[in-house]
């Protein structure tokens, strides 16, 4: 399953719920305001860290750039992908759950 999260973790509990419910082996792609969750200095960093062993984490590069976060340190292990990478992930995982 590919999970996408598009809300900031400090405004909504979307990422928190996703992390609680995503099954082992899933991928989580942070998009739009969801990319704030990727910040190493953010409060979501710890929760992401806890699930790093059984989930894969990605963040959408153009959304990071738009928000001035291209140079900001991200949580270890989060891979940055572009739109093509998004498409590849969607193809790889078949099922998609959009956390809104």
């Amino acid at each position: 399953m590919l999970h996408t999260v598009n809300k900031s973790p400090l405004e909504r509990n979307t990422l928190e719920s996703c992390l609680r419910l995503a099954a082992k082996g899933s991928a989580i792609l942070l998009i739009e305001d969801g990319v704030y969750g990727a910040l190493a200095a953010g409060q979501a960093a710890k929760e992401i860290g806890k699930r790093k062993a059984d989930l894969k984490f990605y963040a959408l590069g153009p959304d990071l750039a738009a928000r001035g976060l291209s140079e900001s340190p991200l949580v270890d292990g989060i891979e940055i992908v572009d739109y093509e990478g998004f498409v590849d992930l969607a193809a790889e995982y078949e099922a998609h759950q959009a956390w809104l």
């Binding site: 900031s8 400090l10 405004e11 305001d33 704030y36 590069g61 153009p62 959304d63 750039a65 738009a66 928000r67 001035g68 976060l69 291209s70 140079e71």
Partner: peptide, 16 residues
């Protein structure tokens, strides 16, 4: 709150 992100330096939006 997240409003402080409005003032973040280095915003670069052509990609979106």
């Amino acid at each position: 709150d997240d409003g402080v992100f409005q003032l973040k330096k280095g915003q670069d939006t052509p990609g979106i």
